[in-house]
């Protein structure tokens, strides 16, 4: 009951923020002056051609009218038509997003498992070898630029050693599995296409490692410091005084408390994953949403930009909402 009203309130707040987000996206795309028409037609296009184009795109109308059209479009789920692909932006997103989702899920799994595991070991065996190792691992992870590690790994494992495939989601000669979810791993299993499954998995390894590494690093850091923090608390002393043994003290009494801040970080890390996805997708030629947004930005394809960034913000907000709810469920003090 208490948790229910908490969720409702957070949902309402999120809707409010998302309205603001749509306004901000509009401001970025339409009010901040750049010249989409110039970008499409080239700088030297004759003036009447430019005017004609503007009229066709509705850019000659007052901003307020454009804004109202845009908001009504949003409510109907219409994000406009991409200037480049000439397809509805919604359809583009539907095409590109599953690739990003699949990559993000793999990277999250990898980073959460590795990060929490290393973080706990690091805190429990503080100042021992495993702690030093984990700390070097994590500080390097948050310091190295994703695009650089990506390029180096690509150079090593694809170009030099040839152990792993380089770019894209599937090899040139693999036919994509029939589309159910858009996630190749799942689709290939559903259609029992093991060939495609293996190929998709191989293609996922490098990008997931690259994308997941920095996330794993920050999760390990937070888990470690949160665990150390919890191990200092009074109730840990109580638990030890009960004589239940070190293992139960750590895994029953400390871990659940220590994971609460980690959950928040996993939410933030997901934001980092979306950012990282932009860079990772660019390096690995991954046909996902990140690359779609970058390309739209390079071409000033403003309907695609607006749709893409808005979609990312919605996804990010939803993830954070889910994280908050998990947080509240885990920590009874948070349900205020």
């Amino acid at each position: 009951m208490k948790l229910g009203s908490f969720i409702l309130r957070r949902l309402f707040l999120m809707l409010l923020v998302l309205f603001g987000v749509s306004v901000l996206v509009f401001v970025i795309a339409k009010v901040i002056p750049a010249d989409p028409v110039g970008a499409i037609l080239g700088g030297n296009a004759p003036i009447d051609l430019v005017e004609d184009m503007k009229r066709r795109l509705g850019l000659d109308r007052p901003l307020m009218n454009q804004f109202i059209d845009y908001m009504f479009g949003l409510v109907r789920g219409d994000l406009g038509t991409s200037l480049k692909s000439n397809r509805p932006v919604v359809q583009d997103i539907a095409n590109f997003f599953p690739a990003t989702l699949e990559l993000a899920i793999c990277a999250t799994l990898f980073s959460v498992v590795l990060g929490i595991f290393l973080g706990i070991l690091s805190a429990v065996y503080r100042n021992r070898f495993i702690d030093h190792f984990a700390r070097v691992f994590s500080i390097l992870g948050v310091s190295m630029p994703v695009f650089w590690t990506g390029l180096l790994l690509l150079l090593l494992f694809y170009f030099r050693l040839g152990w792993l495939p380089g770019t894209g989601r599937l090899g040139l000669f693999t036919t994509p599995p029939a589309k159910y979810t858009g996630l190749y791993l799942i689709d290939s299993l559903i259609s029992l296409n093991l060939e495609a499954f293996k190929d998709a998995l191989a293609h996922l390894v490098l990008p997931s490692l690259v994308l997941g590494y920095s996330a794993a690093a920050s999760i390990a850091r937070i888990t470690r410091s949160s665990m150390l923090d919890v191990l200092r608390q009074d109730f840990i002393r109580t638990a030890k005084a009960k004589g239940i043994g070190k293992r139960l003290v750590i895994y029953r009494h400390a871990l659940r408390n220590a994971l609460i801040p980690v959950i928040t970080i996993i939410g933030l890390t997901f934001g980092g994953l979306l950012e990282g996805a932009v860079l990772t997708e660019t390096i690995f030629g991954w046909p996902g949403l990140g690359r779609y947004i970058v390309n739209s930005l390079l071409l000033l394809d403003y309907p695609a930009i607006m749709g893409g960034t808005l979609f990312v913000a919605v996804i990010y907000s939803l993830v954070n909402l889910v994280v908050d709810i998990i947080y509240a469920a885990l920590d009874p003090r948070m349900r205020i």
């Binding site: 009074d234 109730f235 109580t238 638990a239 408390n257 920590d331």
Partner: peptide, 14 residues
């Protein structure tokens, strides 16, 4: 067995 100064903090919050 032992009891402590800050009883609320001495109980596990979760």
């Amino acid at each position: 067995s032992m009891i402590f100064q800050e009883p609320i903090a001495a109980l596990n919050p979760v």
